[in-house]
Design a protein around this nucleic acid. Structure first.
Lengths: 374, 374
DNA sequence: TTGAAAGCGCTAACAT
DNA sequence: ATGTTAGCGCTTTCAA
């Protein structure tokens, strides 16, 4: 819309003259929509010659290239990305699907994604599923509609059916999964070492004297849940602690609403043999459990110890300070984006896929202090 | 790139036949690039007729419209947004510039922005300044290069010169400022009631028995700093407390690096007459000061009380629980986006601009408990 | 070494 | 009521 208004300004002031060119030079921001045609006219050559010169084609003489480059600079020419995209059939943009941006882990991942994407000339379109399969599908449709060149996705907790992704993948849309990955699709994947993170966390509990360790986790649909569960189970097993199914609580919506977390906690606390420690499996679940325990007046770690996955900077400032397994969010984003752009720009089909596993960090703090023996 | 591969699949399997059409129907996701031409060919009419039929033009007969709609549905036709944009000179995308996404307040704002933008068919391109003027300018250039239809911006702390924005504004790029707004440009603005938020906070300190109230704030360049300072000053004045310049500390980079916050705090603590309370003016500064005080072993609120602007959900769980002024981030994002889209879609130039001020919320907690009298 | 022309998908003025 | 044509800005044969 404003482009038309801009155009009318043009009409009033006349077409680019030396004067208006100088005006242009002075502006750090150009959007006078100088086109290849303008350069061609100015130089008295054809548009295709200009196009080729700008791409440093071998079929254009050095002299002409110089003139074109100089003129492009002078008029502050910027190619129109939409026209290029229309022609080339790409969009130089990549789609992101995450559950929610309002989450330390994901905002760090997105930071990493953007840092790589922008330096490689891509821009990103971020969408949120809010843990809804429906929204995941409709976001994907929105992104395809926007002609993204590739996709970075951490699936929603509700996602069981993966036809929507399989479909696009089969049609050669480059996809890189991160965090919550999917088995049925062969492509690059980037995850934190969820298994080891959970194993370390559980081991730490055990070494601190806890034996009745509960696990509140996300939906069994998603990969991180299984990976973390395995780490938890192995640590128990290695220490001859019998795993108790009633100690494992799933929040089917990843704790999107507080209620399901509250229910899980209630069930644990009112069990015949309540746990003395809780290992929580995601940012939202961890902080919510923390809040709930405080609200209920339950002492951490004396009544019940707590340790969970979270990337919040404030873990150390909580009361008590919160032991945490944190993930390298920024690096996950960087790595996933590098791999995606490699896929996008690869001249040949890629069949060799990797799953990158980045280490987690366990920070021991007061919420999992060694158990006081009676 | 993948489009080309897709194309080759096409070549192998032959052009759309009844069979491949049925295949398409089965897929929830389409991107076989069905064009208007395909529909035209299928129906034996012209492309322009199809185009008009799809837009429900009055010059097309009902019968034809029906056939076109049915066929479009059947072939799963989706218009190519790039072609539309190229033609119409817009892009249906809006640019966002914020200091950083990894911040409760801004991620809530972005949530609000997206919720409105998507329902109105716009997508958003998010960029971060990391409080750098240079990055702000280059992000803006990136966004213009991407042909955004409008801009939502909260300027960086470093931004003094605003020619880059003025320039675009004069060229009729719709801009809505939020949070950190700018005086020199007449357009819509959406902010929290920073003045009242700061006033309330300071009043609360005073009513709780504090008199030596310091203020650690962001760069004086940005609007929120001045607004919050005014609220702070008025509260002092109304209570006959002389404002002490040495109690007001500026973090020129909004606390981007911890060092400047540390310096500010050090100066306050080592003053001849150190304050007994600190009112902090931004999310990052508030949480960092909290962390620093704890690290230094300074008791909150006994040694020094703390209350600040922050949107973190964890305020209530900190040790001690943190008194906070929070902003309606989501609503700010929503409102700003509604206004921006109105500007973008307005058929006539808009001269009537509003500044929307949304209320802040003061949550009193332990970090500002009534001062113990000796 | 350069230019002319076609076309990416869609739209709109101008025929018919 | 429908079709023809031209063109958005750029790229890419193919001719000259």
């Amino acid at each position: 819309m404003w482009l038309y208004l801009l155009w009318s300004v043009f009409i009033c002031t006349g077409f680019p003259t030396v004067q208006s060119v100088e005006l242009t030079k002075k502006c750090p921001m150009n959007f006078e929509n100088v086109t290849i045609k303008d350069i061609a006219k100015e130089l008295g050559i054809s548009a295709s010659a200009v196009s080729k010169a700008l791409k440093d084609s071998y079929e254009i003489s050095e002299k002409t290239k110089k003139r074109v480059l100089e003129c492009a600079e002078r008029l502050n020419y910027k190619p129109n990305p939409m026209a290029q995209s229309l022609k080339r059939g790409n969009s130089k943009s990549i789609g992101i699907i995450v559950s929610t941006i309002d989450n330390q882990f994901f905002s760090q991942v997105i930071n990493g994604i953007e840092s790589v994407a922008y330096t490689k000339g891509y821009n990103v379109i971020i969408t949120q599923t809010h843990e809804s399969y429906q929204l995941e599908v409709s976001n994907l449709r929105h992104l395809m509609y926007r002609s993204i060149d590739g996709l970075l996705i951490s699936v929603s907790t509700e996602t069981e059916e993966i036809d929507h992704l399989k479909n696009l993948h089969q049609k050669n849309l480059p996809i890189v999964f991160f965090d919550r990955v999917i088995d049925g699709i062969e492509t690059h994947k980037v995850i934190a070492d969820n298994f080891k993170g959970a194993y370390d966390a559980t081991m730490h509990f055990i070494e601190s004297g806890y034996r009745k360790i509960a696990h509140i986790t996300s939906s069994p649909n998603i990969s991180i849940t299984a990976e973390r569960l395995k780490g938890y189970m192995l640590a128990l097993e290695e220490n001859n602690i019998k795993a108790d199914d009633s100690y494992i609580k799933y929040c089917l919506h990843g704790g999107k609403d507080m209620l399901e977390i509250e229910n899980a906690l209630d069930e644990l606390l009112h069990a015949d043999n309540p746990p003395d420690a809780i290992f929580t499996a995601s940012d939202r679940i961890t902080t919510t459990i923390f809040q709930l325990l405080k609200k209920m007046g339950i002492q951490i770690p004396d009544d019940i110890a707590l340790l969970g996955f979270t990337n919040t900077h404030l873990a150390a400032c909580l009361n008590p300070s919160l032991s945490a397994v944190s993930q390298p969010g920024f690096e996950i984003g960087e790595k996933a984006t590098e791999m995606l752009i490699n896929l996008i720009e690869s001249k040949y089909p890629v069949y060799d896929f990797e799953t990158i596993v980045l280490p987690t960090t366990l920070s021991v703090r007061d919420s999992s202090k060694p158990k006081v023996k009676y």
